[in-house]
């Protein structure tokens, strides 16, 4: 199992993501100008401030050459995980439903949050059980998940809400307390909290490792 972790100008969590992936498989960094994914079986779009978050968070990164390759990979069923800014990029690219808006508080939030696993039947959460509580750090200014009412109803009905902030834990005003969603096909996931920062007992929680472990357990679908 080989992970590819995309590095954009302005990414800042790609090394932690790389190290998290390497606990469960091989991993290498991909550059935003790359046009192929160097044989990756799964792609991680990490957190940070790609292209300075100019215009809107994620709006410019979606036009980078590597995102064409990521979109084609996702269309073929390849697993793609977007974390924080990566979630914003995937929404802007139309690979995930909805959008991320500035936190209701307008403040940068940086703290450990509890999220509930709402759907354990995905490539990203198969190492969890439904109802599991994961303690993962969140750190963002633009994390308020929004989707038009019809879309929200649909993603709820389809089980596309994979992670939800536990009661009282919503750090950003996200609708329906949504912390992480998958696309309709189930092979693209985005979440605001940072599982890559919660893989070592030294930092207080290893719960984030469950997502990488789930992905590593997945049979590669692409040769």
């Amino acid at each position: 199992m080989k992970f590819g972790v995309v590095r954009f100008p302005g990414s800042c969590d790609e090394v932690d993501a790389l190290l998290a992936c390497r606990r469960f498989g091989d991993a290498e960094l991909l550059w935003h100008g790359d046009r192929d994914l160097r044989g990756a079986d799964a792609v991680v779009i990490p957190g940070g401030f790609s292209y300075g978050d100019y215009l809107r968070a994620g709006a410019i990164a979606r036009f980078s050459p590597v995102m064409e390759a990521v979109a084609a990979f996702a269309a073929d069923g390849g697993p793609v995980l977007g974390i924080c800014n990566g979630f914003q990029v995937l929404c802007e690219a139309g690979l995930l439903p909805g959008a991320l808006l500035p936190n209701t508080s307008l403040r940068f939030v940086c703290r450990q949050v509890d999220v509930v696993v709402e759907n354990a039947d995905t490539s990203f959460t198969r190492a969890c059980a439904r109802g599991d509580l994961l303690s993962i750090p969140g750190k963002h200014t633009t994390g308020r998940y929004h989707a038009p009412a019809d879309d929200l109803d649909r993603i709820e009905a389809n089980g596309q809400v994979v992670l939800r902030y536990a009661p009282g834990e919503n750090p950003n005003g996200a609708e329906h307390d949504i912390a992480g969603v998958v696309n309709e096909a189930g092979n693209v996931m985005g979440l605001m909290p940072h599982p890559e920062h919660a893989v070592d007992p030294l930092t207080g929680s290893t719960d984030g490792g469950k997502l990488f472990e789930s992905l590593a357990a997945r049979e590669p679908v692409l040769a």
């Binding site: 215009l55 809107r56 709006a59 036009f63 802007e92 959008a99 808006l101 038009p148």
Partner: peptide
């Protein structure tokens, strides 16, 4: 495609 996000 770029200047606005029509969803929001």
């Amino acid at each position: 495609k770029l200047l606005a996000n029509p969803l929001i």
